[in-house]
Simulated scan of single mutants.
Amino acid sequence: MASRREAPSVPSLGRIAVIGGCGFLGSHIVSLLVERHPKTSIAVLDLRTSSNRNLSPNVSYHDCDITDYEGVKSLFERLKPDGVIHTASPHFHLAPAIHDKVNVGGTKNLLKAAQETGVKAFVYTSSASVILGPNVELVNADEEYPLVVGDAQPEYYTTTKAYAETAVLAANRTPPTFLTTAIRPAGIFGEGDIQLLPKMVTAYHKGQTKFQVGDNNNLFDFTYVGNVAHGHLLALQALLDTHKMLPTVPLDTERVDGEAFFITNGQPVYFWDFARAVWHEAGDRLPLSSVWHLSENVAMTIGAILENLFWVMGKTPNLTRAQVRYSTKNKYHSIEKAKRRLGYAPIVDLDEGIRRGVRYILENEKKEREKKGQ
């Protein structure tokens, strides 16, 4: 007879495939799946599955190019996933043709293979920036804001994320047993981050914390990766629960399938306050009185000059016009819809997320120094 003190058994979610599961966000989703649903069978599909491997016996790894439809379908036929979480996406700075091929073409391949092999639930990692235009400020923006694509969208990567999201939501209930949703995270950071925190810590190491662009009066969303993973699992669970009730269609006020959701920390912060919190955790103690303020116009001019100089060398400078725009504009979102329909609430606050992310970087830097005998 089982002891009354035993933890309640957590039911399996069935067979779940995480596309891009060796990447930054994907690996956190896999770890959270293993932690919360230890009986679930998890298949990680990635272009190369050599990094971020979870040691759980319930996780299998499969090299897969999502731009190869036949390869994807063959794997799905063999793995027979009940649910798919699609996080795979090329690096922001790669060529437009790659974004088209992977974000749009690859997503459509996954959708088609999922529809043809009996997948029940499909969760897509979109981006909060799909509603962000060059001259738009987002103040508590919700899911009613229109997508900004094509000529109106200066970032081609974002256009392809929006097109992929549209394809995912359009595929909902086609066939009637196939349910889809899209998660729109904003400013993801944390352990394993390769874009946001590493650049900020590098700026600290280079003594670049004495500069600030603008007056720091714009609020910005940054989201700890564990919260984004949490949002994805809530969405997956909601779709699987909805599938059990088919052919019933939930009320519009409760519906998850066919819908998009912003996921953030729910703690918009002044842009440079976030940067300074990162620098402080890394060891910076520069007083605010020593900070030099660059106006937005001056920073834009410097960014344009640097972009042209670095373009000749085939590199990207530390300061670009896009970075100036983002660091001086309001950009934060409402998570009320996610709270109501997914039951979402952040599980790690901003300060703790910063501590975890920066300490991860510093510990890895220390290991590298020790390897080199420094």
Rank of each mutant, 00 (worst) to 15 (best):
T248F: 02
W272G: 06
T107P: 07
V119K: 09
W272V: 05
L239Q: 01
N172I: 01
K199T: 01
A182K: 08
H232Y: 12
G83I: 14
V18H: 12
A304M: 13
T242Y: 06
G266Q: 12
N135K: 14
A7N: 08
M300A: 11
H205T: 00
H230R: 15
R36S: 14
V130F: 00
I98P: 04
V59N: 11
H93L: 08
E70C: 09
A97T: 07
Y326Q: 06
W292S: 08
V123D: 03
S27A: 13
L111T: 06
A304E: 11
H91F: 15
P175M: 06
R321A: 08
M313R: 10
L362I: 02
L75T: 00
S56Q: 11
H28F: 05
D284A: 00
F178M: 13
S31K: 14
Y326D: 01
A299M: 14
N103E: 04
A171F: 10
P175V: 11
I183L: 08
S41K: 11
F24A: 09
V201R: 02
S51L: 03
A128C: 07
A186P: 01
I131S: 11
K329A: 03
Y270A: 05
T202A: 14
N364P: 00
A164I: 02
I361W: 03
P134Y: 03
L147K: 04
P287D: 04
T242P: 04
H86P: 07
F92Q: 12
N135H: 13
K73C: 10
T159Y: 02
A95P: 05
T117S: 01
L239P: 00
